[in-house]
Design a protein around this nucleic acid. Structure first.
Lengths: 212, 212
DNA sequence: ATCGATACTGACAATATTGTCAATAGGCGA
DNA sequence: TCGCCTATTGACAATATTGTCAGTATCGAT
């Protein structure tokens, strides 16, 4: 039978870029920064490696695009997690749980870590002041709550520290969870992990005076 | 004048390995995993790159030696920080401060992160159960303290969670401190950083019932 | 149906990086 | 002082990876 040539598929630029970024992100998460190799990614997607260069100009362009997309998604998910919750009840636990999931389970912490470890000076363009916005949001809610309960309002510094602790803990846990488990001599245990996250949420709730 | 040849220096094997590891560690901290290149490290030390291969057999051998040394030092410093402190007074603040410094300022968190991000499955050989040992240490002290003050003793899980939070927060802060600062719209500020660490120590002290 | 824009490819170039090897030389003990 | 051990080196090999380029094929627009 005749050797049939492989039909060349042609995608829209946006679609091709999506596929390439997805593959690159997967490799980055699983194998670390050194696993981002054009040839490998191209093979994953099923294209030739110059196609990647066509879309992103250079390897560095690809990594920048990757970083931008990850930051955008992260911000969207965090803002969504915080602003979509009801103001009371199990709000804190839920928000913390979702933030943990976004950073840890979804792999965003690993992406960020790679960026931070690799780039010496953070790109001023990417300064989004995300935590500033979150801290202001949280602080407003704390002040409001304190007023309604006739308690003295917390200091801004205290709220900023709360947010910073949460961010550091979630990022650290997102990267090191398997390492921490092993160092405690524990196997990976989702139930225990959930208990830890709840415990942390209640600790923060107790400190901030918000009902858990 | 006569072109004088560069005199070849000859060090002991241990000394040469020290210098090589120091240079590799510096590059790793400053430039990330991809910055560990034999030629660059050799230039930093002032030797030729085959000398590195002579001492460590391969690039991978070098990175393994680097990891082992970092883990050994980390454990030694943490155990020292915890066990050398007086049992009361400003103990918690001091221990937390030293642990932060070891992980963050000394760059061990970055080293660990690189390892964890790069290696898919943690090396069972390197399982040191360091956190298990620390948690047991802390728990014993908490129980002792609770007894002397006629309070009910804390649960083991609570202590483990305290240690896990501290570890995650310190590791996260050690890696992301510049990023967090930027995201808060703040310049690097050592005084503020110290305040944060103290604040965190007092939060833990309040929760654990230990005097700050 | 034709045409133009461009996503895509194969072959090749340029470069960098790890690793090998034979030869050299510095320090230490006899 | 002599001789051995081995730390060290320069040259080279092998390989991998990014990037270039000219040409092709596909899809949408007219």
């Amino acid at each position: 039978m005749p050797a049939r040539r492989k039909r060349r598929v042609r995608r829209s630029a946006a679609e091709a870029q999506q596929l390439i970024l997805d593959a690159a992100e997967k490799r980055l998460r699983e194998g670390g920064p050194e696993a981002i190799r054009l040839q490998d990614i191209a093979r994953d997607v099923g294209i030739s490696h110059p196609a990647i260069l066509h879309h992103f100009a250079s390897r560095d362009g690809l990594t920048q695009a990757l970083e931008r997309r990850a930051m955008t998604r992260l911000e969207a998910e965090l803002v969504e997690a915080i602003s979509s919750q009801p103001a009371r009840g199990e709000a804190v636990v839920d928000v913390i749980e979702r933030a943990f999931a976004t950073l840890g389970d979804a792999g965003h912490a690993r992406m960020l870590a790679w960026r931070v470890l690799q780039v010496a000076s953070p790109d001023p363009e990417a300064q989004q002041r995300l935590l500033r916005a979150l801290a202001d949001l949280v602080h407003a809610r704390r002040v409001e709550l304190a007023q309604s309960e006739r308690r003295p309002p917390p200091s801004e510094q205290d709220t900023e520290f709360v947010v910073r602790l949460a961010a550091a803990a979630m990022l650290g846990d997102g990267i090191f969870a398997p390492f921490l488990d092993a160092s405690f001599g524990r196997a990976n245990n989702p139930a225990r992990q959930r208990r830890f996250r709840e415990w942390f949420a209640r600790l923060l709730a107790a400190h901030t005076g918000v009902s858990s």
